[in-house]
């Protein structure tokens, strides 16, 4: 079963590699992955869809939480969340089918982003399963070319973001002293 993991990460070189490394080191294949900046340009939001053995999911999430560049990891697989994906699709068609395609596009709330004698380019968003259907329908009209964005998701529960505070630099921050400032969870 596919799982959805949402992460808030520092927008730094290598951060993506560290996160995906937790999965690839265990031989898990990533189904989809999206990353983009948040309101804070120093942070990125990452949504990963992956097929992880459910018994190992908690472990994988803990490992991701351990990464220095990762601020927060949320498991959206079993918590209330809204997930959406976007598809850009080009369908080649003859003149006879053009009206039918536009009707179908309307049913799926897809928008026409390009129209030419060869056919249309369409844009649709929605739940991934709905997009699967949309693609199937379009395929019945002719040759298609598809680009999917991968899933983005937002949790419907608010989760408090806990961050470590700054600490002194240098040997003054001895092993234990350096932890005085660290919050107790």
């Amino acid at each position: 079963m596919l799982q959805v993991i949402s992460l808030l990460v520092e927008n730094k070189p290598g951060a993506l590699m560290r996160v995906t490394g937790v999965l690839s080191a265990r031989g898990y294949n990533i189904e989809s992955l999206t990353v983009a900046r948040t309101l804070d340009p120093g942070l990125s939001r990452m949504t990963i869809v992956v097929d992880v053995d459910p018994s190992l999911r908690r472990q994988v999430i803990k490992q991701m939480n351990k990464l220095v560049n990762v601020l927060q990891v949320s498991d959206l697989s079993e918590s209330p969340a809204v997930a959406r994906e976007m598809v850009l699709l080009r369908v080649r068609t003859n003149l006879d089918n053009r009206t039918a395609i536009l009707k179908e596009a309307e049913i799926f709330s897809a928008r026409v982003v390009d129209s030419s004698v060869e056919g249309f380019a369409l844009e649709a968003t929605g739940a991934p399963e709905k997009l699967d259907e949309f693609i199937d329908v379009m395929r019945s009209y002719g040759e298609i070319e598809v680009t999917r964005s991968g899933m983005v998701a937002v949790s419907l529960e608010s989760k408090k973001l806990r961050l470590a505070p700054p600490i002194l630099a240098g040997a003054e921050s001895s092993r234990i002293d350096s932890r005085n400032g660290v919050f107790n969870g």
Binding site: L163, A164, P166, A169, G170, V182, G185
Partner: peptide, 16 residues
Amino acid sequence: TPVGSIHLPGYKIYTE
């Protein structure tokens, strides 16, 4: 300039 403090917001240690 010597660094005064460092901040690793994602590096949380639970000590207590």
